[in-house]
């Protein structure tokens, strides 16, 4: 299918064509009948200039609007976006009109990333603590042992 830029150009050309067809030379000569009778060639040349000048001005205006709005680039990029969505049949999401709601989803991917980061560091911390806890328990046992040893030695001496 033709892209948006082609359709846009074709539609404007058609508009111009039909406008010129509607404002035909017959119609023009008919309106300026008295002048036409006096100067038919002049009338023709004035009409031709009118048509070509009108077409030039309108084409220039369209080009200016396209340049100002960067329309060609936008049309092509929109064509691509539409092409990508061609398998998506149901109506797509649209802004709800409630900014807080709409911004929420934009946050979600980052919150999910944050959540998995927190899960990871928590797991690491728990693992680390588990190891340290083991050595604390071992340390406590060792101390208890030492205290018993000392107790035994003390008793022996006593």
């Amino acid at each position: 299918a033709p892209g948006r830029a082609q359709v846009f150009a074709a539609v404007v050309d058609t508009f111009l064509e039909k406008l010129v067809t509607a404002g035909s030379y017959q119609r023009f000569a008919n309106c300026y009948r008295s002048f036409y009778k006096l100067q038919p060639e002049m009338t023709r040349s004035i009409y031709d200039q009118l048509v070509s000048q009108l077409q030039t001005s309108i084409k220039e205006e369209i080009q200016e609007v396209k340049d100002e709005g960067n329309l060609d680039m936008l049309f092509n990029s929109l064509d691509k976006i539409v092409e990508e969505a061609k398998d998506h049949k149901e109506p797509a999401w649209r802004p709800s009109g409630i900014p807080e709601e709409d911004v929420r989803s934009a946050m979600v991917p980052y919150l999910l990333k944050h959540r998995s980061y927190l899960r990871k560091v928590l797991k690491e911390k728990e693992e680390e603590n588990r190891k340290v806890a083991e050595s604390v328990l071992a340390g406590r046992e060792r101390i208890a042992e030492l205290q018993q040893l000392i107790q035994a030695r003390k008793l022996a001496w006593q």
Partner: peptide, 21 residues
Amino acid sequence: LVLNIPENVILPEDKVHEQYP
């Protein structure tokens, strides 16, 4: 045909709404 966004189309900056509704 030209200056409109078909209703099944979502703009790139809004894709996140389709992925994380």
